[in-house]
């Protein structure tokens, strides 16, 4: 099997982006070392990862999945149960659970995903939300495993106080890097092409021999597995899981908003969206208390994005940059007409 072919066409720009991103991830907690800063970074990276993972289904395949909170919660509960019931221990050892949790969730969702993915559009959105509330109901009611509404306290790790958040930060950073890498691999493979075709016209894709069921299932399973991994690290960091927090509709909605704002369909859009929204949300929560007032800001932002930036920040800015570039080139060489092709959506000013 040729992974991405013989001559992988990684643009130097792409490799540069990847290195810059990894470098920033490594340095950030050292530069911004205060407890509240690293705490904010942990959540920013988590949401960046959740939004990117959601993008596999919601952006690339165009399936409006609203229930990813379910998989996050499954990951969180798996971590809580693993550390308390199974006796994995504390310290760094619970991090070893993250990978099995991700793989386990990715495999476990296959049967339900097969059912869900037979529906489309609004029906799919509603069913995916339903699945999330089903999982929440299970978490409330299977008391022997989840302690119901009492929640499970995860043992607090004995990390040194001054750098307590660092291990969690780096765990989130590794997961985010992995998620972005998975997204990149999907985008640059035929899987990504097939998913985009499903997004544009699923019926026609079937008629052209695209195995739509299979590609949707792979995307959903990857997305769910990655989401669960973030849930697992989150549970260990928060050190307490409770059905209402761990399986939270707002979590998926927040991640989706970030993907929309930054630019779903793009690789870095969800990361950009998270970097903008999470700090803003924390600031609002700090200013106006832990009320749900920030939800009004969420709604307003959603409307603004849909009306003004339907493609998100990244595609809109690249379009504008391209337009500027062509214009300046046209000015220097007057016989060169601005090329329509550089303005993919063909929008007028």
């Amino acid at each position: 099997m040729t992974w991405l072919g013989r001559e992988s066409r990684t643009r130097p720009g792409g490799a540069l982006q990847a290195f810059a991103f990894l470098g920033a991830l490594a340095v950030l907690p050292v530069v911004m070392g205060r407890h509240w800063q690293v705490n904010l970074l942990v959540f920013t990276l988590m949401y960046a990862g959740l939004a990117s993972a959601w993008n596999l289904v919601g952006g690339y395949a165009g399936y409006a999945a609203l229930g990813h909170g379910a998989f996050f919660g499954i990951g969180a509960y798996a971590m809580a149960i693993g550390t308390t019931h199974l006796g994995v221990g504390t310290g760094y050892r619970p991090f070893l659970l993250v990978l099995p949790i991700a793989v386990g969730t990715a495999l476990a969702v296959v049967p339900i995903a097969r059912l869900l993915l037979r529906t489309r559009a609004a029906t799919f959105a509603v069913l995916s939300i339903t699945v999330m509330f089903m999982v929440q109901t299970f978490a409330y009611n299977i008391r022997s495993l989840t302690h119901g509404s009492q929640g499970i306290a995860v043992p607090v790790p004995p990390f040194p106080f001054t750098t307590f958040e660092r291990p969690f930060y780096y765990a989130m950073a590794i997961l985010l890097a992995l998620t972005v890498a998975v997204c990149w691999a999907v985008r640059s493979s035929q899987l990504g092409l097939a998913l985009n075709a499903v997004r544009d016209d699923e019926d026609r894709a079937r008629g052209l021999g695209v195995q739509t069921e299979l590609v949707k299932l792979i995307a959903f399973s990857l997305s769910a597995g990655l989401t669960a991994a973030f849930g697992a690290v989150w549970a260990y960091y928060i050190s307490y899981v409770f059905p209402g927090f761990a399986i939270d509709p707002l979590l998926s909605l927040g991640a989706i908003l970030m993907a929309f704002l930054g630019g779903r369909h793009t690789l870095w859009g969800p990361v950009v969206g998270a970097a903008l929204i999470v700090p803003a949300q924390q600031y609002f929560a700090y200013r106006y208390g832990a009320s749900h007032l920030y939800l009004i800001a969420y709604a307003a932002l959603f409307l603004i994005v849909i009306y003004l930036l339907p493609d998100g920040i990244l595609p809109s800015t690249t379009q504008r940059l391209n337009r500027l570039r062509t214009r300046s080139r046209a000015r220097t060489t007057p016989d060169l007409l601005p090329m329509e092709a550089l303005n993919p959506r063909g929008e007028s000013e």
């Binding site: 099997m1 991405l4 072919g5 013989r6 640059s188 493979s189 035929q190 092409l193 052209l208 299979l214």
Partner: peptide, 17 residues
């Protein structure tokens, strides 16, 4: 896209040579 392929071809490059 319309080039029918086995499932494992999904792992190949988006547009092969």
């Amino acid at each position: 896209l319309a080039h029918h392929q086995p499932w494992h071809a999904l792992l190949r490059r988006r547009v092969s040579v």
